[in-house]
């Protein structure tokens, strides 16, 4: 998936001309996406430290309500967006996947903080899952430890941009036979079974890593930061389980 430009059939010149006369025209898609992006209901679901910053974002100073996403729902059945705010441990991962499965379409995921992206500072922990994208697809990765409330606002607006770019006809959840539910991992004697879901995530081979990030970073020498994309690897097919 990539961010699509919104393909409106009306020329932008004509649009602005009409606008001067007090007529606003838009495509159905515009209205549809405008409605959806302005009322994102996140799941009230805090995991760790980042949850506190999530609460701070919802409070008066940062005021998440400006972006229409202040209505935290306690039930996944009523939520559009799952903000995975904090370290996902192996003990918690089955529940996170289960919650994701319970959410109705269309559903989005923001991983908030380094831990939920790839384990973060706790990557050496035995019980720490190295990124929730091993089991479920993620829309926006939000780095930081913890990300500031402004960063979460950025994440929400980035998600809104994604929603704006979606087309009704091509939306995944209108495709026939698609069910975006993923198998829930189980506890094993050493860790979770399976360790990851190859439909969603695959470990990077050395050649692919080089392809994406260039040569390995040498000690003391920093190349440019990896490109900060909002989506996962385009080569990995997401869905159809």
């Amino acid at each position: 998936m990539t961010l699509n430009q919104n393909l409106s059939t009306v020329e932008s010149g004509l649009k602005s001309e009409l606008r001067k006369k007090g007529i606003v025209i838009a495509t159905l898609e515009d209205f549809y996406n405008w409605g959806r992006r302005s009322s994102i209901w996140p799941l009230q679901f805090g995991l760790a430290c980042c949850a506190i910053e999530m609460i701070a974002t919802a409070c008066a100073r940062y005021d998440l309500a400006r972006f229409g996403a202040e209505l935290f729902r306690a039930s996944p059945r009523q939520a559009d967006l799952m903000i995975i705010s904090g370290t996902v441990t192996k003990k918690m991962a089955p529940q996170v996947v289960r919650l994701y499965n319970q959410m109705p379409e269309p559903k989005y995921v923001i991983t908030m903080g380094a831990c939920s992206i790839a384990g973060g500072p706790f990557i050496d922990g035995t019980n720490v899952l190295k990124g929730i994208d091993r089991y479920i697809p993620v829309d926006v990765h939000l780095p930081g430890c913890p990300p500031r409330p402004e960063a979460l606002l950025w994440g929400i607006t980035e998600l809104q941009r994604k929603i704006d770019g979606q087309e009704i006809e091509k939306n995944e959840w209108y495709q026939r036979g698609l069910k975006r539910e993923f198998p829930i991992p189980e506890f094993g004697p050493k860790g979770l079974i399976p360790k990851f879901n190859p439909d969603v995530w695959r470990p990077e081979t050395a050649s692919r890593r080089r392809e994406r990030y260039g040569d390995p970073i040498l000690l003391g020498k920093k190349t440019a930061a990896p490109k900060f994309e909002t989506f996962g690897d385009p080569n990995v097919k997401v869905g159809t389980v």
């Binding site: 198998p183 050493k190 860790g191 399976p194 360790k195 190859p198 695959r202 389980v241």
Partner: peptide
């Protein structure tokens, strides 16, 4: 002396589990 598991490779248990749940393993 505890060694954590290597999480970037699938073991046979994982492969069996995934196939049981309808995931095609490369």
């Amino acid at each position: 002396d505890y060694l954590p598991e290597n999480e970037d490779v699938l073991e046979w248990d994982d492969v069996e589990w995934l196939e049981r749940h309808g995931v095609t393993v490369p």
